[in-house]
């Protein structure tokens, strides 16, 4: 009986672990593992990196890729990159993103939004933190027409929506300068990228050294920008990760103590009878 239980347990565990791994298989290069700050059960987002990543997204990616499931206020929510600001050299927390000067400034800098005023006229007004980010296209047809037939995907949950997540995004962004194998036929409008499933991608290599000027003075190498924008996208896809992990720690602790108490009660109660 013991053996059967052990075999069953091992097999069930193997099945759970093997299934998602098996699904990722395909004909493309496995992305490089990167040591992200959010790896592991206690990992958190590097807020500076997420802030820089937002800058890269806004100045490079946003021309073609939307983040339609995010509102501007999300940048300043708990766990967001602009939740804490340096005000007069003091680290200040803004619990309400609508009062957060950095978030308000970001909103006002973006394209104005169409709205309807009190007498029903369509007007344009500056964006507020509660508004969505501007979307680069009016509809999918326009997006395809502007990009040679390919529709740039929305990036709100791209890190969850790709196998290998953040590692894939980072490797893809840095994977352009590879030598094209002879058996790969790169047609005009396509680019070779070994990390892309199918190895051909319609997105041109967009990152170039020093194409953004970071506010914190970090040198903008391709790798730095790829790391930073992936940090931003990882946060955008899973904005509650930090509270999830810290709550998990408490829940696990609670359950372990409860399990110990129940086990002790079990031993005590069953000690009265032969079993």
């Amino acid at each position: 009986m013991k053996t059967v239980s052990r075999v069953l347990a091992a097999a069930a565990a193997a099945m759970i672990i093997a299934t998602p791994m098996a699904m990722g298989a395909g004909k493309y290069r496995t992305p490089e593992q990167h040591n992200w700050s959010f790896n592991g059960p206690f990992g958190q987002y590097d807020r500076q990196a997420v802030q820089r990543g937002y800058q890269v997204y806004q100045q490079v990616c946003a021309a073609c890729h939307g983040i339609k499931h995010l509102s501007i206020r999300h940048l300043g929510m708990p766990g967001g990159p602009f939740e804490y600001l340096e005000i007069n050299g003091e680290r200040t927390r803004f619990p309400n993103p609508n009062d957060n000067p950095a978030v308000v400034a970001i909103a006002e800098d973006l394209f104005p939004i169409e709205d309807i005023d009190d007498i029903g006229d369509v007007i344009e007004r500056p964006r507020r933190p509660s508004d969505p980010f501007p979307y680069p296209y009016a509809n999918e047809a326009q997006g395809r027409a502007a990009n040679g037939g390919a529709y740039p995907p929305d990036l709100s949950v791209i890190v969850k929506g790709r196998h290998y997540g953040a590692n894939y995004i980072r490797s893809l962004l840095m994977g352009y300068d590879q030598e094209v194998p002879e058996d790969v036929d790169v047609r005009p409008g396509n680019y070779y990228n070994p990390y892309m499933p199918g190895m051909l991608i319609a997105m041109p290599p967009v990152l170039m050294d020093d194409m953004v000027e970071y506010a914190d003075g970090t040198p903008a190498t391709i790798e730095q920008m790829a790391n930073d924008v992936t940090y931003f996208l990882a946060w955008a896809a899973d904005p509650h990760m930090e509270s999830r992990k810290s709550m998990g720690f408490m829940v696990m602790g609670y359950l372990f103590i409860l399990a110990l108490l129940l086990y002790a009660s079990y031993r005590k109660i069953w000690s009265r009878v032969k079993h």
Binding site: P20, M23, R244, M252, W270
Partner: peptide
């Protein structure tokens, strides 16, 4: 009740492990 209760809590520990530390691992990226 006490034996089931203990087993339920052990099961909940595994459950919580997935919920808090690997919520996507049982799903599919697509």
């Amino acid at each position: 009740t006490v034996k089931d209760g203990f087993a339920i809590v052990v099961f909940l520990i595994i459950f919580a492990g997935f919920v808090f530390y690997a919520p996507e691992v049982l799903g599919h990226a697509d």
